[in-house]
Structures are given as structure tokens and as C-alpha cells.
Simulated assay, not measured.
Amino acid sequence: MLGIDELKIIGQYRAMITNVERKTVFDIRPSRAKAELMPYFRDLRDKDSVEWVAMDMYHVYRQVVRATLPQARIVVDRFHIQRMANDALEKLRKRIRKDLSTRQRLKLKDEQFLLLKRQHDLTGRDMDRMREWFQQFPLLSEAHALKEGFLSIWDQKTRPAAEAACATWQANIPTELAATFKDLTTAVHNWHDEIFAYFEQPITNAYTESVNRVAKDMNRMGRGYSFEVLRARILYDKKARKDGSVIETVLVDDDDPMTTDFVFQRMTTAATRKKKITRVVEYGPYLPTLARLLEEGYFE
């Protein structure tokens, strides 16, 4: 399971690639451009073993994965699509603020995080404050309900149930809020399969985004690293790579044939002895170790 996310660092966007299952950094590419990623993934060793790829809704990533990893299923990071519901509510809140008095404008600005909190996390006092605004601006109340309704889709247990909940949600968008939620509804239409694939394989890019923060902090501490130096410090740190390694025992073909009978060998060319070997497999630097080392000032 791979994760792909963009990272803007040292002047341009890079592509951060992680092993989602192992919580390790797989690679950091110098660019997220299609011309850079297409040959990289086309020549990727053991690429047929990739089954799932988590990403945001950047069309280049989808094009590259479809062209070079056709067997892999794409999953849109749930937090990325959910963030768009919050963005729609924020768009309306800012529009309402423009027509308010200075005092009210400042007050509604302070309510930003209250409106974005999940309803089940609100206290009684929070709800009272929200009702005051909803009574003044009923459209804000409807937009808040739509935000909550969209986020609740991910409470469903199966893909068919989630798709049905989404269809019901879209049907309940009032005409006056259609433009506010247009970016979200367009994304759901254009990325439908990849969004709801989450209910078949619930993986996210949370660890990929975490390593992005580590990389940014590491670059700040480095005071002017080149991209190549930063990439090397992340990928080849011995402590983090050790924690991202596993020891496994596997069966391999022995060099000696199973029998010395020439006729039997000729008739059963695949018949060879198997032997067990123990080997260390490196999956890349372990993200929690990188984060701990960063906190300890190891990279300063």
C-alpha cells in the first residue's frame, strides 16, 4: 500500500511517497510533475506488488498510477475530501461576514472553529452560541447541516450504504447552496470510485502528511539544505531505517537437485529442493522514529 502526497519545500512541489502499511518513507521525488513521475513508476522495482495507492485528488497522480500500476486500486484520502465540506461552510461564513457590522464581523470570525467542530463534540454552551447565529442566518444553519451530513457518510460500514447516503445528501442540497458546495459535489462526481474505494480498503494519507511536516521541520533546522541533502537525511538515516526493517524467514530454491537420476531431472525440471533462509528486509525509514529524532534535536 503506497501513499502519494505533495510537499512544497525548497521552492517547489515535491512528491512524497510512503509505504502506508509499514509507516515508512518510500521515496521523495524532486517534482510532482507527470514527466518526472511517469518514468519513475514505470521502472519501479516489484511494482506489481502494489495493490492500493492512497492520494489526494491531484489528477496527475491518478494518471500516473493508472498508466504504470494498472493492477493497483486508488483510494482518495478521506480527510482531503472531508476538508472540502468544511471549506464550503467557511466560504459561506466569510460571505456573511462581509455585510455585518465591525463588532459582529469580529464575533463571527471567532466562531470559525466552533462551526467546524463535529456536532457530536459540541457542548451545551457551544450549541447555544450556534443557535444564535442560525436564528440570524438560516442559510448558515442549512450549510452547517450539510457539512455534518457529508461527514457522517464515513460512519457507514459498507460501500453501498455510503454511496446511498451520499446520493441522499446530494439530493437535499437546496438550490441557494448549490454554488457554495459545487467544488465538493464536482469532486464527488469526478472521483466517485476512488472516494468510495475507502469503504473497501480504509487507508488514508495521514502518515504521508506527517512525514511532510517532519521534512519541513528538518529543512528549517538545516538552514538551507539542498533538496538532495534533505532527501538523503530522511531516506538514509540509519536509526530510522533499522526501525523500519523486519527479519523474515523465506523458502528459496536450493542449488542442489532433488535427485541424481538424470531421467527424473529431465522430466521434472521444476523439482528442486527448498531451503529456509533468514533475511533483513528494509522498508525505508520508520516515520515515528524520524518524528522522535526530530523532537530530540537530532537533525539540528
Rank of each mutant, 00 (worst) to 15 (best):
residue 219 N to C: 03
residue 278 T to V: 13
residue 285 P to Q: 07
residue 208 T to H: 01
residue 186 T to E: 14
residue 275 K to N: 09
residue 261 D to H: 13
residue 262 F to L: 13
residue 251 L to D: 11
residue 285 P to H: 06
residue 270 A to K: 10
residue 205 N to A: 10
residue 225 Y to A: 03
residue 255 D to S: 12
residue 216 K to C: 07
residue 189 H to G: 07
residue 177 L to I: 01
residue 267 M to F: 12
residue 255 D to A: 14
residue 275 K to T: 13
residue 289 T to L: 08
residue 174 P to I: 07
residue 248 E to I: 14
residue 182 K to H: 09
residue 211 V to C: 03
residue 188 V to Q: 09
residue 268 T to K: 15
residue 229 V to H: 12
residue 201 Q to R: 12
residue 287 L to R: 04
residue 221 M to T: 06
residue 204 T to Q: 06
residue 177 L to E: 00
residue 231 R to D: 04
residue 239 K to L: 02
residue 235 L to P: 01
residue 286 Y to L: 07
residue 279 R to G: 03
residue 215 A to H: 03
residue 182 K to P: 01
residue 215 A to M: 11
residue 211 V to H: 04
residue 184 L to M: 11
residue 191 W to V: 09
residue 203 I to Y: 05
residue 180 T to V: 07
residue 291 A to H: 06
residue 226 S to H: 00
residue 294 L to V: 04
residue 261 D to L: 10
residue 212 N to C: 09
residue 191 W to E: 11
residue 202 P to K: 10
residue 286 Y to V: 05
residue 231 R to L: 01
residue 199 F to V: 06
residue 222 G to I: 07
residue 193 D to H: 12
residue 258 M to I: 09
residue 238 K to H: 04
residue 280 V to A: 01
residue 252 V to C: 10
residue 265 Q to Y: 02
residue 238 K to P: 00
residue 245 S to T: 14
residue 277 I to S: 09
residue 200 E to P: 01
residue 192 H to P: 01
residue 252 V to K: 14
residue 225 Y to Q: 03
residue 202 P to Y: 10
residue 261 D to C: 13
residue 220 R to P: 01
residue 246 V to T: 15
residue 282 E to D: 10
residue 177 L to A: 00
residue 291 A to P: 00
residue 275 K to S: 09
residue 251 L to Q: 13
residue 290 L to T: 12
residue 248 E to Q: 14
residue 282 E to C: 05
residue 235 L to H: 02
residue 209 E to R: 05
residue 210 S to C: 13
residue 213 R to Y: 06
residue 258 M to G: 00
residue 204 T to D: 06
residue 279 R to T: 10
residue 286 Y to P: 05
residue 231 R to A: 05
residue 207 Y to K: 07
residue 229 V to T: 14
residue 208 T to R: 02
residue 221 M to R: 15
residue 232 A to E: 10
residue 250 V to S: 06
residue 289 T to P: 11
residue 217 D to C: 12
residue 275 K to L: 14
residue 255 D to C: 03
residue 279 R to E: 07
